[in-house]
Simulated scan of single mutants.
Amino acid sequence: MDTDTAAHRKRALRAELRERRQNLTSTERQAATVGITRNLIDLATDLSARSVACYLSTTIEPDTRPFVGWAVGHDIRVLLPVSREDGLLDWTTGDGETEVEGLFGMPEAVGELLGPIAINDVDLILVPAAAVDAGGMRMGWGRGYFDKTLGSMEKCPPVYAVVFDGELVSEVPRERHDQPVDGAVTPTRIVEFS
């Protein structure tokens, strides 16, 4: 698929998924949060993770905050991303509660900046996604921060995308820079890709 076609298909799919997320009821959202939190805790526990890279979810994303709170409460080191102007992610061990609006209006943690390579020391990486396909290809929201981060890592720990159930799709449009994930966590299951 040529790059223009893939980029166009991604824009259309992102718009559809964003609208679907915005139309979730508060009851659906609460149920999803309970399931996502349970599955993230199970995943971190199964991997014996002592350090996790996660992100602070926006109001329409699957809610990662209860998991971040659980991890901090269980002495798991949580690195949270901070967007930089140069397209890289910096990391901090913010408390998961104190936050500011980042470069693109996304919530970001407040804390001492540890540099882009801090992520090299985690046991598990949890990334946002618009969709993930059956082969583990992740489609993000179009800024490329996580693709760049994952693509630059020498040895990458397991990477899981956090999505709603309907965002596991048969295929996502792919461009050369896109990075696959090892699995996906949804409100109802943990999926591993081979």
Rank of each mutant, 00 (worst) to 15 (best):
I119N: 05
L114I: 04
G96P: 03
D63E: 13
A109E: 02
D123T: 11
P66L: 03
V122P: 02
G105R: 13
H74L: 03
L124R: 09
E99R: 15
L113N: 05
P81D: 12
E101N: 14
D95R: 09
V78I: 13
T64C: 13
E97S: 13
I117D: 15
L88N: 11
R84K: 13
E101G: 14
G69E: 13
I125V: 15
D63I: 06
E101Q: 15
D63W: 05
V68I: 15
F104V: 00
G102F: 07
A118V: 05
D75P: 01
I117H: 12
L113S: 07
D95M: 09
F104H: 15
V100M: 14
D86W: 11
L89A: 05
V100K: 15
N120D: 15
R77Q: 10
W70E: 00
P81W: 04
R77L: 06
D63V: 06
L80M: 14
L88R: 14
R65V: 15
S83V: 13
V72D: 02
P107H: 12
V100C: 08
L124F: 13
I125M: 14
V72P: 00
P107C: 11
T93K: 06
G87S: 12
F67Q: 07
G94Q: 03
F104I: 00
G96N: 08
T92M: 09
L103P: 00
R77H: 10
L113C: 05
E85C: 00
S83P: 10
L88K: 13
V78E: 02
V78W: 04
H74D: 05
L79A: 02
D63R: 09
D95A: 09
E85K: 13
E112G: 01
G94V: 08
G94R: 02
V68K: 02
L80N: 08
L103Y: 06
W70V: 01
L114V: 03
D75F: 12
I119K: 07
P116E: 02
E108Y: 06
I119T: 08
R84N: 11
P81R: 06
D75V: 04
D75T: 07
T64M: 07
T93N: 08
G111H: 10
M106K: 11
R77A: 10
A118P: 01
W70N: 00
A71Q: 03
M106V: 15
R84W: 00
P116D: 04
P66D: 01
W91T: 00
I119M: 08
R84E: 09
R65N: 12
R65G: 07
V82D: 00
E108D: 07
L88W: 07
W70P: 00
T64Q: 08
P116V: 04
V78F: 05
A71S: 04
A109I: 11
P81M: 11
D121S: 15
A118G: 02
P107M: 11
A109V: 11
L79Y: 04
F67A: 04
R84L: 13
V82F: 03
G102M: 12
V110E: 10
G115D: 06
I119E: 05
G69Q: 12
T98G: 07
D123M: 10
N120G: 14
L103I: 05
V110L: 13
S83C: 15
D86F: 12
D95W: 03
W91H: 03
L89P: 01
P116L: 06
G111F: 07
D121F: 06
L89T: 01
L88D: 07
V122T: 11
L79G: 01
L114R: 04
T92D: 12
E85W: 08
G115E: 10
E85T: 11
